[in-house]
Design a protein around this nucleic acid. Structure first.
Length: 517
RNA sequence: GCUCCCAUCGUCUAGAGGCCUAGGACACAGCCCUCUCAAGGCUGGUACGAGGGUUCGAAUCCCUCUGGGAGCGCCA
């Protein structure tokens, strides 16, 4: 903590240093790995984290679209911070200026907002912290933890192919480690002088202790020849400066961790607790690609998913709580624990996401569904302002739609003129014999003193009884008449929401069509 | 190639040596309910990757193999 603090005063690029939370978190015991038998150092890192408040971070790079893989690690970090009354930090890792785009950054910001994963601090941008990185870089070189390397890209490439030919792991051989003179005409990079012997143990909450031999690690480049710092270095400086206590990220980073720990140690900082979560695979078990779910998270909003449903789906990937499948955000916050997360990768299952979305839609209040539905109608080119009617439609449809988009598509008839009838439905239900039924229904409904589902229900039933036909012979023609299709919510509810005027108009129009059939 | 990680139904998971002739969920099939579509209820099939150990006893512990993944970049 002292060392961390040392790097944190008096400079302009500081973060609101988490104002001395010295409260010890009672829940830190949760970070004891489940497979304790593997961990001999449990006591140590427990102690290391027990006297600081939890600070987690989500650190995406805006080089591609934020997709569900990223969202899940963000969710885990957010959930963990919430559970421990900690702080969730958002940091945009945009040091790769070539590939970073404003568009991707915007998707991250909008996506996080849509999902409700709000950051307690940030967003911070690495590109605005360059002075700080240069400062640490200079100190590193000065202290002998890093050195300038004058090897050219060509030489490096050659070294690499030599090593590959010899079936060795490609790595930098340390040529410039002891170079004392600059090499004219070459802009040097800066490399971290990794320890040459011993090993590093990554104490991972999910994986247990993972040991890496330092001989496997080479001297990585921490600053490019143009002086800009690279990812692994920035992460280290940022996590230290931002006092991150728990790093939760994809397990594709597990191999980077030992180097980061070495740098942290060189900086005199205590490494955070690590949790490397398994990755999400595509539905076919292959790497997640655009074909599966690797689309912008905002795509899910377009397709009519509720944020809570997407989050629910994601939290259940690699984590469970008994037999429970449906979780509210509050339940997730109360129950989720990073130490319970599985070690193995899981495949993305669109069907289950759909099912969960329906479950969440069913359990939502119609009022809360209204704005989402409005959004979907807008996408369909149907402008709807009537909030009460929107809620009424949502209520009528909420258990028969897997997505809000689907709900809107199936509900256009409530708000817009019919654009004709579904051919099959009309052929079957708008027939010569249904014309008199429709006429009778029209008559009954016009005479109804009260326009509500119960009264409509009785009226429809009485027509069926009077004509001595099954309810289906009455309800289906009405359904086609008012919705244009053979599918809708229960007919009484449908008519109530539609309103008497529209209902009668459409029934009469359909009766004429039936007559002509 | 080297290093590291992972391994229960098609998929997500439960399972920390006996409670497991392996439980739940999605999907699928059938039935029930029913004015359509749903929702809901009931029923059904399918899994411990292989081989060795340890043990009275292993899905659970150990080893090997196999399979999958990640990293090895002046990308993040």
């Amino acid at each position: 903590m002292d060392q961390v603090a040392r790097h944190s005063h008096g400079r302009g690029h500081r973060f609101n240093p988490c104002t001395a939370h010295h409260l010890s978190s009672p829940c830190d015991a949760d970070f004891v790995p489940r497979r304790v038998h593997k961990s001999i150092r449990t006591q140590e890192f427990q102690a290391a984290s027990s006297h600081m408040s939890v600070r987690t971070r989500f650190a995406p790079s805006p080089t591609g679209m934020l997709h569900i893989g990223g969202v899940r690690t963000a969710l885990f970090s957010w959930l963990y911070a919430k559970r421990h009354a900690g702080t969730f930090v958002l940091r945009i890792e945009d040091t790769d200026r070539e590939r970073s785009t404003d568009e991707a950054t915007q998707v991250i910001l909008d996506g996080m907002e849509w999902l409700g994963l709000s950051a307690d601090e940030g967003p911070f941008y690495q590109t605005r912290r360059m002075d700080r990185y240069r400062e640490v870089l200079a100190k590193f070189v000065q202290d002998g933890h890093a050195y300038r390397c004058y090897c050219t890209k060509e030489e490096l490439a050659e070294m690499r192919s030599r090593q590959e030919a010899a079936k060795q792991k490609p790595r930098y051989d340390g040529t410039c480690r002891h170079r004392t003179e600059p090499r004219p005409g070459v802009d040097p990079v800066i490399r971290f002088a990794n320890p040459v012997d011993g090993s590093v143990i990554v104490e991972d909450v999910i994986h247990g202790n993972v040991e890496f031999q330092n001989t496997e690690l080479d001297d990585l480049i921490i600053a490019r020849s143009d002086g800009t710092p690279t990812y692994n270095f920035c992460v280290v400086v940022d996590d230290m400066d931002m006092k991150i206590t728990h790093v939760i990220r994809g397990d594709d980073h597990l191999n980077n961790t030992p180097r980061q720990i070495n740098m942290l140690k060189a900086l005199g900082s205590t490494p955070p607790v690590y949790a490397h979560v398994p990755m999400i695979l595509g539905a076919d078990g292959a790497k997640l690609s655009k074909r599966h779910g690797a689309v912008s998270v905002l795509q899910y909003r377009e397709e009519g998913f509720l944020p809570s449903a997407l989050l629910n789906y994601l939290v259940r990937l690699g984590w469970s709580h008994g037999d429970q499948e449906v979780f509210t955000l509050e339940e997730m916050q109360a129950l989720f624990d990073i130490k319970d997360v599985n070690k193995s990768a899981s495949a993305f299952n669109p069907d289950k996401l759909l099912w969960l979305n329906q479950q969440h839609i069913m359990r939502s209040t119609p009022q809360s569904l209204a704005p989402h539905l409005q959004f979907q109608f807008a996408a369909l080119g149907v402008a709807v302002e009537d909030n009460a009617k929107l809620a009424a439609v949502a209520k009528a449809q909420q258990e028969r739609a897997k997505t809000l988009k689907e709900m809107a598509q199936n509900s256009v008839f409530f708000f817009a003129e019919l654009k004709g009838y579904d051919e099959k439905a009309a052929k079957k239900n708008l027939t010569a014999e249904s014309a008199p039924v429709l006429a009778a229904v029209h008559e009954r409904l016009s005479a109804l003193p009260q326009w509500n589902a119960a009264a409509i229900h009785d009226a429809v039933n009485s027509v069926a009884a009077a004509l001595n036909v099954g309810l289906g012979k009455v309800a289906q023609p009405i359904r086609v008449a008012v919705s244009g299709t053979s599918v809708s919510p229960p007919i009484d509810v449908t008519l109530e929401v539609l309103g008497r005027e529209t209902t009668l108009l459409r029934i009469d129009a359909a009766r004429k069509v039936a007559l002509a059939a």
